[in-house]
Design a protein around this nucleic acid. Sequence first.
RNA 1: GGAGGGGUGGCUGAGCGGUUUAAAGCGGCGGUCUUGAAAACCGUUGUGGGGGCAACUCUACCGGGGGUUCGAAUCCCUCCCCCUCCGCCA
Length: 421
Amino acid sequence: MLDAKFIRENIDVLKNAIEKRGYEINLSGFLSSEEQRLALLKDVEELRNKRNVVSEEIGKLKKQGQDASNLVSEMKGVSDRIKEIDEVLKGIEEKTNSFLLNIPNIPHESVPIGKDETENVEVRKWGEPRNFDFEPLNHWDIAETLDIIDFERGAKIAGARFAVMKGFGAKLERALMNFMLDLNTSKGYKEIFPPILVNRESMIGTGQIPKFEGEYFRIVDPEFYLIPTAEVPVTNIHRDEILREDRLPIYYTAYTPCFRREAGSYGKDVRGLIRQHQFNKVELVKFSKPEDSHAELEKLTQDAEDILQKLGLPYRVVALCTGDMGFSSAKTYDIEVWLPGQQRYREISSCSNFEDFQARRANIRFKREGKKGTEFVHTLNGSGLAIGRTLVAILENYQQKNGTVIVPEALRPYMGVDIIR
RNA sequence: GGAGGGGUGGCUGAGCGGUUUAAAGCGGCGGUCUUGAAAACCGUUGUGGGGGCAACUCUACCGGGGGUUCGAAUCCCUCCCCCUCCGCCA
């Protein structure tokens, strides 16, 4: 969320940002309603001041046993007027608030300008896609041969976009979680295991709703949301808190299952493990001081890349352009892993700096030593990594002609075998 | 699910219709004293919004929302959360 005052004073900056993102938002209505709101605010505060002063007077008169009925009836009128204005003000403020909640973040100046994913910019590449002396298979074919993923029974138990992991499939899933958490915690990220059902305030805090309500699973009675990413509960750990400067930066890593409706993605990735309603992910979350956040984004992205390097999986890093970036983000790098079965790079991690956008929604602030007042922290997060997609990448990149899959060296202590057969 | 007790500033905790613009203590910050420190003493101490170049000033905030009243931390309604006991349960 952006600040109403900021928008009032920087209307052109916002106009420009919205245009670059390809959003269409009418800002002129906002400005005139702000004008009205501030005028009413001034009026009502003056009336309140009058009421405060006179009410105190009434108290004194009554204590002295004097008659104050004239003042009382006058103040009755003032109070009624305050109530009327408050009513109008409340209506305006509700509109303003829902307007503000639907304004996307302003892209950082370093973000490439473009309309969609075709204009994203490749930043760097790591590793060489392997040369196969046979036709590499899709992961669902490999998995079927090895009997480690059961899509049919996933559909029977739950529905489309659900899978049952079996045997070494299940174990690989678990090995990857542990491997990633161990690596991340060794770099100073504190391990968190948060609730995976959250309340509405938390979803608003990180920017998932109200704009994208339909993309998430919601339990109606009692009301809860199933988290689409650990970003939600972990960022909200510090909602409505004022942090001490010397606590920053804070690094968290969390494994959680994630749940997404995948509304609007019908026909996309219908086969395989790439796009499931439920998937596992290890997440990296940071809270930093504003001046450090972009350096922290670079480090966070490298921490995610390091996982792929240790697993020996070729990837590239892409800077998302203004038109492809998520609603809340000021800057995003996607990490895309090479999938031989599809002969292309696929997203396996998305690392973003939200600057103060989420912090403002979730009211996460910090206090500088010796300085008055508070500032919003900057929040960042990135997948480190999506487990299901990492498993897919391992199956496809490490497959052998005879249908077996070599276990990457870094995972062998977790798997207990060198080859999945 | 049933019964009861609570939610007040960074923390502890008083206040339960108008000398509270929230007492007191702890902590924090500044100072006096001291070779230095401790102790003692003195002063200071939150967050948001509006106005002002500024000193400053007005306003809101005692879990959230609503109501009663000239006036609400205090009374009423409602929701949320925490604690204790009973029941059930991984």
